[in-house]
């Protein structure tokens, strides 16, 4: 992509591009490095889970029910059907990430164009504002309840419900960034130059809004992962026997006193995923903050 008229991409006195400076700041922040490493490992495990999980997720072993953690062959123990907890966590994490990415993608695909339009075209602002108000009135769980009633509970519907609930947040941040960029000289110059509105939006405003979009995505992703866990826990998301960290906890709840580990590790996995995304998101936001450009 050739971006000519992007002021942010100009070089600093040190002769470094903005991207290099952001990456350098990230590398110097130990929290960013640690969280990124953990995330990379988690994503790798999740992607490769079907091949590297020690057991198949549906493989039951009724002679080996509720084995405690550390049992030879079952590092994190087994559940009520003798299934390997570690293997199910690996595949559950995969499903969590899948729903998380799908939800965030949904919210960006709908929210970014609406946010750009609301910020750029004054006339559309009020209409899109009312649409945002309307979406906000339906919390994600209520949306999921409605969708489950109409279309049945599934991974896809959970992702859609979470994604729809995240659209207002996307519209808000993109709108305010568009308002800011619209008032800058280089946009005015492009307009004077005879550029169409669409051209200005796609070639000038959108590339400059990428850092805002990136930060929004890192905030939304852990929230979506937590939301998926809630929906699956309640039975409104991924359906058994498909592994999901939320459904694992729902089953484990019934046997919590016999097998506390089955109720502990899946939750810990959700927390580690969400925590590392949140830590990395914070670091990324700090690194992208122009106040640090010196």
């Amino acid at each position: 992509m050739t971006v000519v008229s992007v002021p942010d991409a100009g070089t600093s006195p040190a002769g470094l591009t903005r991207r290099t400076r952001v990456l350098r700041r990230l590398r110097r922040n130990p929290l960013a490095v640690v969280s990124f490493t953990v995330l990379a490992i988690a994503v790798l495990i999740a992607v490769l889970a079907p091949w590297i999980a020690p057991y198949s997720v549906e493989q039951t072993d009724f002679t080996n029910i509720f084995s405690p953690p550390g049992t030879p062959g079952h590092l994190l123990g087994t559940d009520d059907l003798g299934r390997d907890v570690l293997s199910r966590i690996m595949l559950g994490a995969r499903a969590s990430l899948e729903v998380g990415f799908l939800a965030v993608l949904t919210s960006l695909v709908v929210g970014v164009p609406l946010g750009l339009a609301a910020g750029y075209f004054g006339k559309l602002d009020a209409v899109i504002g009312r649409f945002t108000d309307l979406l906000l009135a339906f919390p994600f769980l209520i949306l999921a309840v409605g969708l489950a009633a109409i279309r049945g509970a599934s991974l896809g519907n959970a992702a859609v419900a979470i994604g729809i609930a995240q659209i207002p947040g996307v519209i808000r941040v993109i709108r305010s960034d568009t308002l800011r960029l619209k008032s800058l000289d280089f946009v005015a110059a492009a307009v004077v130059d005879g550029a169409s509105d669409l051209w200005v939006l796609v070639r000038h405003i959108l590339p400059n809004a990428t850092s805002v979009i990136l930060v929004q995505a890192t905030v939304a992703l852990p929230a979506a992962i937590l939301a998926e866990a809630v929906l699956s826990f309640l039975g409104l998301g991924i359906q058994p026997p498909d592994p999901s960290l939320g459904t694992m906890l729902a089953t484990a709840q019934q046997f919590a006193t016999q097998a506390p580990w089955a109720a502990t590790f899946p939750g810990l996995a959700i927390m580690v995923l969400a925590l590392t995304f949140n830590v990395f998101g914070d670091a990324l936001r700090d690194a992208l903050d122009p106040k640090g450009d010196r």
């Binding site: 906890l249 919590a256 109720a263 899946p266 939750g267």
Partner: peptide, 11 residues
């Protein structure tokens, strides 16, 4: 921000 609250409730 990162802990699933229903899990915290379970624990």
């Amino acid at each position: 921000l990162s802990v699933p609250h229903f899990w915290l409730g379970l624990l």
